[in-house]
């Protein structure tokens, strides 16, 4: 999986900035995508491309349980979020709904990846290649159940 990075050098990117409260009434996924990251980055919708990745700091997706958050990002084209850590509901929504991959990275990887870098993610080798900088980083492997749900294509396709 290859893509370009949109990096937000900050912690606690919450669901209210990922998709603000007034849009919670919307359940048309493509319409939600138009408002993704609106509370933090007004230009997100115009700059995001299919296959891009977001890189961010600690506690990504904290706040509400709104599944609108991973949905808005996924339907904007985001395939994975690489963050130092994730809030629990965002994490399980992303995985169980098969919207995008929440990938935990360490501090040095976070510092090494720059905005607009091209990276390649290999979830079998648990490796992230920075094609722009010719560097390779380790990603934290998914836990057993999470890996199985991702492989199945979401919770509804997973057979316990």
């Amino acid at each position: 999986m290859k893509g370009d990075v949109i990096k937000y050098q900050r912690d606690n990117i919450d669901t209210d900035v990922i998709i603000p409260g007034p849009y919670l009434k919307i359940h048309d996924y493509n319409e939600l995508a138009k408002h993704a990251m609106e509370g933090l980055d007004k230009d997100f919708h115009s700059k995001v491309k299919e296959g891009d990745f977001i890189v961010a700091g600690r506690n990504f997706g904290c706040g509400s349980s709104r599944e609108h958050a991973p949905i808005a990002l996924a339907y904007s084209g985001i395939k994975a979020v690489l963050a130092l850590s994730f809030a629990r509901i965002f994490y399980r929504n992303a995985v169980d709904g098969a919207f995008l991959l929440p990938i935990e990275i360490d501090e040095s990887t976070y510092n090494s990846i720059s905005n607009e870098d091209s990276v390649e993610i290999d979830t079998e080798k648990n490796e992230i290649k920075n094609l722009t900088k010719n560097q390779t980083y380790a990603m934290k492997p998914f836990s057993e159940l999470i890996g199985k749900i991702i492989a199945a294509g979401g919770l509804f396709n997973y057979k316990p």
Binding site: G63, S65, E67, R92, N93, D96, G97, G154, L155, F156
Partner: peptide, 26 residues
Amino acid sequence: GGDSHTNTTGALGAFAAGLGHTDIAY
């Protein structure tokens, strides 16, 4: 519950946790 503040009800001695739409549908 399909809301993050579902935790509230744990004050009654229940395990109470918030989930997203896919999980609640499941």
